[in-house]
Simulated scan of single mutants.
Amino acid sequence: MSDAPIVNLSGYRFVHLDDLPAIQSAMKQAFSEVGLQGSVMLASEGINVSIAGTREQVTAARQWFDQDPRFADLWLKESYSADVPYRRLRIRRRTEIIAFDGQDSEKLQARRPPAPSLAPETLCQWLDESRDMTLLDTRNDYEIVSGTFPASTHLNIKHFRNFKVAVDKALAEGRLDRDKPMVTYCTGGIRCEKAAPWLLEKGFREVYQIEGGLLNYLQSCGSRHWEGDCFVFDDRVELTPELQPTGAGLCDHCQLAVPAGTECRCQLGRH
């Protein structure tokens, strides 16, 4: 628990939703009434939540989720900040809660076998042991600049939509091995919920995902085996391994995190 007054909640759930306009309207009214800010994505395949407010406000949000059996006990990761890292409340309907498959997302996700989760402490132990495995970073290239596991394999993608093509390329180049155990990771876990089952479908023999994503790993294991900070998709931009804002800003041109009081290197190159 932190002394910071703002609680940030993030999480997701894959669950069939067939009344998206009604959910959107009810949630917008309930969250607006208590003054919450942030972003919620709704799709027929589920919900993706990133919201922030005072302890009283986020408690009201949890109570709202719990009154709907589809969202009851929704696992929402907590972190803390001095200010709300969102400028308004946005609740949007989309084809997917994270872009990957397109129109057939719910059907394709349902037919894929789920990949097992790996506790952060178990991954830390495997890294301690220098276990022979592929640690696959499923994030975008600009996120990786902020921080990563040095032992990772990176796909150099600009957007998660490019993940499948990048995996095919890495296989052709011999940078990925279907027979080697693989652990996938992303910031909060939602991208790996898509990527890991697809990798199993693609013929990779043994695929895991970090339980709760990087944020859960950093909270559980700190900076062990991790180098740098963690990029996040809100106004905090970057978090330290202790999950505290670094004070970085975001470059409008290249999306890189920029230390406070400095100019992005892409802008320096324009002079």
Rank of each mutant, 00 (worst) to 15 (best):
D3W: 07
P5D: 02
V7L: 08
R13T: 09
F14I: 10
D19R: 15
L20H: 08
L20M: 09
A22H: 08
I23Q: 03
S25V: 12
S25Q: 15
S25W: 12
K28I: 09
Q29F: 11
L36Y: 04
G38M: 02
A43G: 14
S44G: 08
I47L: 02
I47P: 00
T54H: 00
A60H: 08
A61P: 06
R62Q: 13
W64I: 04
F65S: 04
D66V: 06
Q67A: 12
D68H: 14
F71H: 01
L76S: 07
E78G: 05
Y80W: 13
S81W: 02
S81M: 01
S81N: 11
S81A: 15
D83C: 10
Y86D: 02
I91D: 00
I91V: 14
R93V: 15
T95R: 14
A99H: 10
D104M: 03
S105L: 05
P116R: 13
A119R: 13
E121L: 13
L127I: 11
D128L: 08
S130F: 11
S130V: 06
M133R: 03
T134K: 09
L135V: 05
R139T: 01
N140A: 09
Y142L: 05
S146Y: 09
S152M: 04
L155S: 00
A166I: 00
V167K: 00
D168T: 12
D168C: 09
L171E: 07
D177L: 01
P181M: 03
Y185E: 03
G188P: 03
G188F: 02
G188Q: 11
I190L: 14
R191E: 06
R191H: 11
A195D: 03
A195R: 02
A195G: 07
L200F: 00
E201Q: 10
F204E: 06
Y208C: 00
Q209D: 00
I210L: 08
L218C: 07
G222E: 05
R224K: 15
D229T: 14
C230R: 08
C230W: 06
C230V: 12
D234I: 10
D234E: 07
P241H: 10
P241L: 11
Q244R: 15
T246Y: 02
G249E: 05
L250R: 13
H253Y: 13
C254E: 01
C254Y: 06
L256A: 12
V258M: 02
P259E: 05
G261A: 01
G261I: 01
E263K: 11
C264P: 01
C264R: 04
Q267V: 12
Q267W: 11
L268P: 04
G269D: 13
